[in-house]
Design a protein around this nucleic acid. Sequence first.
DNA 1: ACCACGGTGGACTGAGCGGTCCAGAACGTT
DNA 2: AACGTTCTGGACCGCTCAGTCCACCGTGGT
Lengths: 193, 193
Amino acid sequence: MALTVKGRATRQRIIEGAAAYLRSDDPAGVTLDDIRAITGTSKGQIFHYFPDGKEELFLAVARYEADRVLDDQQPHLGALTSWAAWDRWRDAVVARYRAQGRNCPLGALMGQVGSTPGANEVVTALLNRWQFHVQEGIVEMQETGLVRASIDPDRVAAAFIAGIQGGVQVLRSTGGVAHLEAALDTLVDYLKS
Amino acid sequence: MALTVKGRATRQRIIEGAAAYLRSDDPAGVTLDDIRAITGTSKGQIFHYFPDGKEELFLAVARYEADRVLDDQQPHLGALTSWAAWDRWRDAVVARYRAQGRNCPLGALMGQVGSTPGANEVVTALLNRWQFHVQEGIVEMQETGLVRASIDPDRVAAAFIAGIQGGVQVLRSTGGVAHLEAALDTLVDYLKS
DNA sequence: ACCACGGTGGACTGAGCGGTCCAGAACGTT
DNA sequence: AACGTTCTGGACCGCTCAGTCCACCGTGGT
């Protein structure tokens, strides 16, 4: 399938339109017809650009959303070299998810797509990149002596990822960011102690 | 709807059969017909005992599973009065989810049911009870001087809940319990420090 | 001018599935 | 034994929705 400039634009329009729609509404009941209407396209186009249909489209949207997750944390996440930087990062994460509210785009997508290999791969790749950045930050803090050397950067970075994921999970049920904040603050506190 | 003894038994059979089936298979594609076949019942019975249909049945299963979550952590969760008890609890949680593997019954159910008020209520109630027990444990440890008084039991208990939820979430994608262990160990370590 | 190929529109299909309905069996109460 | 109530079975309905198909349009290369 060779795409022209126009074709790429349409494909992208479908992805972004679908992403926006899935972000606002409950994705459980989202149909291809909804997406068709929202993006001002037709069934023909959707299957032209995503031959495997719904699953392929949703996976493309998931990849798109996954990229945004890390983008929204930059530049803080990439330079966790001082306590001030950690605080800014913490605030960025909390702000992002507070704004997002109950509608976690990726979470909802995953609930939809289920546990296909492709879906797991998208999530795993995101979590790996995320954790890597946190780990890098911890290592750098250790090198400058701000964090004691006895802690295991990989392990604590994993704990951060788990804490954030869980905080967001709770947010999806309760609507509050208290757990997310508690997890982040407690772990940062742990690094400082 | 007045249920006889036989009726209650059938209703329970449906719930448990559905729970078992949902636990093993991908719940996204589970139909009422599947449940009917598994439980050896009929459409008539399902709607007799769950007049609101699929949603009511799934909610009943969710409640059933939610109860099991805490049950599986007992008696450890209810008596976090020594470091040994905390370790036993930690091991019980990890063992439970390791055995469960990728198939988180409640998580999958929630992905199915979506964000109905009823579903949120089930999850919120579970998390509250869970967090309460952890908080109680922290307070008791403080009273016996094993945990320093300067930490906020509520906040750290919330961090535990977030860490566990996130660890399970990661488990669902990667199949590994490393994140769950990292979260628990790091937070217990935090309490000890 | 032509032609080939990618882009676009939308009617149509087919099946899966939640939910309805009713007839009849079992039960238990008097 | 008779009658009301609950339990059970399964045929049936209707709708939703992913996916198909094909005709037509736009564009760019020669």
